[in-house]
């Protein structure tokens, strides 16, 4: 069973995100990067499936050179292979451009299952997996809280507000995993050392047969018009308990129609 994980590498959680006012894009170059925790959950799920059913996990990421550390991290966790789509021509790609590049790379591989995070932890658009499934002609199974594979059939528990739906599909398929599906493993120290010996294949847009009308800033159909900060939150209400604190809290909650 061969599984492809689409794993985004994002600025580390310790980094204060900056937006370039000219491009309205996140500043990614020159800041520490890490494997997106959401992607780590997708990878963990892939590793567990291959540990149970055999096969190998291949990680694919599209990103700048700084993404290498996150790819090494994925390899250290146990991914067997890695592909880095790395090309300045891809800078400024919108979600669809990203999906096209990922789809083109995935088509070069033999696979049974593609697993993505439901959304990345930096830009949160959440639309790449759906576009990717469409481009690959795969059944998308979204927001999985649990994944089971039997022969060529995949079943997920799809998280809903009231519980979950059971969703089945024939493989090959594409699954997005909901946050909290698992607790990603820490790499073993030996895994970290072994990761440096694993090859990371690098592909450019041209290698994938993609031109400037499809990817990069020139190929982007989605334009960010403006970026602003969320409105400052109003000051909270402080309740001083002078014997009637409980009543005041209850009144406040009633006012909010919470109770």
């Amino acid at each position: 069973m061969n599984i492809i994980i689409c794993a985004k590498v994002i600025p580390a959680s310790s980094v204060t995100i900056e937006i370039n006012p000219a491009t309205k894009c996140m500043v990614r170059k020159g800041v520490p990067h890490e494997l997106d925790p959401a992607a780590a959950c997708a990878l963990e799920e892939g590793l567990r499936l291959t540990e149970k059913h055999g096969g190998a996990v291949t990680v694919i990421t599209m990103g700048i050179g700084d993404a290498t550390i996150g790819i090494r991290n994925a390899l250290a966790m146990g991914a067997a292979n890695a592909i880095h789509i790395l090309d300045d021509a891809l800078a400024g790609s919108d979600a669809l451009g990203t999906a096209k590049a990922l789809a083109a790379a995935i088509k070069k591989e033999s696979f049974d299952l593609v697993i993505c995070a439901a959304e990345s932890s930096d830009s949160y658009s959440g639309i790449v997996p759906g576009q990717l499934a469409q481009l690959l002609g795969l059944s998308p199974l979204t927001f999985a809280k649990e994944i089971a594979v039997e022969a060529k059939k995949i079943t997920i528990k799809r998280q809903t507000e009231s519980g979950y739906d059971l969703v089945e599909a024939e493989m090959p398929a594409l699954v997005t995993v909901a946050s909290g599906i698992n607790e990603p493993r820490y790499p073993q120290l030996k895994g970290i050392m072994a990761a440096k010996k694993k090859e990371i294949k690098q592909w450019t847009a041209a290698d994938l047969g993609l031109g400037p009308d499809q990817v990069g800033a020139s190929g982007a159909k989605e334009k960010v018009l403006a970026i602003g900060r969320p409105a400052a939150r109003k000051a909270g209400k402080v309740i001083t308990d002078e014997g009637d604190g409980g009543k005041q809290v209850a009144d406040f909650l009633a006012e909010l129609k919470v109770i």
């Binding site: 550390i69 090494r72 250290a76 820490y186 790499p187 120290l189 970290i192 990761a195």
Partner: peptide, 14 residues
Amino acid sequence: TEEQLQIRDEIRRV
């Protein structure tokens, strides 16, 4: 080195 940075980052995470 890249490897040393990775070791440092991983032990920090643990």
